[in-house]
Design a protein around this nucleic acid. Structure first.
Lengths: 156, 156
DNA sequence: ATTGGTGCAAATCCTTTGCAATAGC
DNA sequence: GCTATTGCAAAGGATTTGCACCAAT
């Protein structure tokens, strides 16, 4: 189950959460969460790594990956399988979905909730423990659709 | 094993579709589609490549990737961003969703449709041309959930 | 005859692993 | 002090590119 709805959870809460599990609250972990939250947008591990290094030089990429994965497990972040390119991580709590352009790879947000109750139930009946549901729309973003039209026109 | 008759569109239709776009109906393309359809399940590019090579030795991996991507563009296949590991391709036409186990990476199907009309409309209003909607549930499969319980019990 | 497709090899990109050193608890 | 976590370097996988050759139209 995702975690209790708490719109914003500060770093101290992360510390507590980790301690409960017998894990350590390292500066890297705190800063990574902070950086992920600072952006009101999804980010790649690499982007987060660069940002974190400004506050905490030397922070390594393996650490960033491990921590992001840990945050997902703790319910503090979502993974977004954009399909093309790198995995995205997102700390936004408000329900929202993603649109991925298959031409330029851009990923945009779309606010709104999707009714997944029936789906979750069906999965549960199969013994699957649902932790999250990702809805990704693929297609062409406005820019690429426009460009596509042009190209088709030229070809004639 | 004899080839099951394709439920929807046979290879000749692919030929026509390609010609309409000024593209060529190569044996590789026809066999790749046939192999993807033969499996009533999602498959990786590599799996398809191996199967195709039995009928058409020498078929290369870049060709398999390019063709699968082409089939997606033609609407004859779906991409499933399983998140962990390789991208999956699926030629099943019936509406169904996917469950990905975050522990063992297994991907299972779940039949059923999800109401995405409102979402598509909202995306369209943003100028985005929706081609497909992918719903992926993540969590633990029955096996891994059971194993997880055990491990937690042992730790105490 | 054109020119779109293919195969090959190599490159690129993302992510994970192994292991010694470090630092929370 | 114990051991989880880190950084480093390197490995590992998946997917893409560049280019010369081939084949569908």
């Amino acid at each position: 189950m995702p975690l209790p709805a708490s719109p914003v959870l500060d770093s101290d809460d992360l510390t507590g959460l980790l301690h409960q599990r017998g894990q350590r609250a390292t500066p890297q972990r705190l800063v990574i969460l902070r950086e992920l939250r600072r952006r009101e947008r999804h980010a790649t591990a690499d982007e987060i790594g660069q940002a974190v290094r400004e506050a905490l030089p030397g922070t390594s990429i393996p650490t960033v990956y491990a921590t992001l994965e840990l945050l997902v497990e703790l319910g503090l972040a979502r993974r977004v399988g954009a399909g093309s390119g790198a995995t995205l991580y997102d700390a936004r709590t408000a329900p929202h979905q993603h649109m991925v352009c298959r031409r330029c790879g851009r990923v945009d947000d779309l606010d709104g909730e999707v009714e997944t109750g029936a789906l979750r139930e069906a999965a549960g009946a199969d013994g699957f423990h649902v932790e999250g549901v990702e809805v990704v729309m693929s297609g062409l973003c406005a820019d690429c659709a426009r460009r596509g039209e042009k190209e088709r026109a030229l070809r004639r």
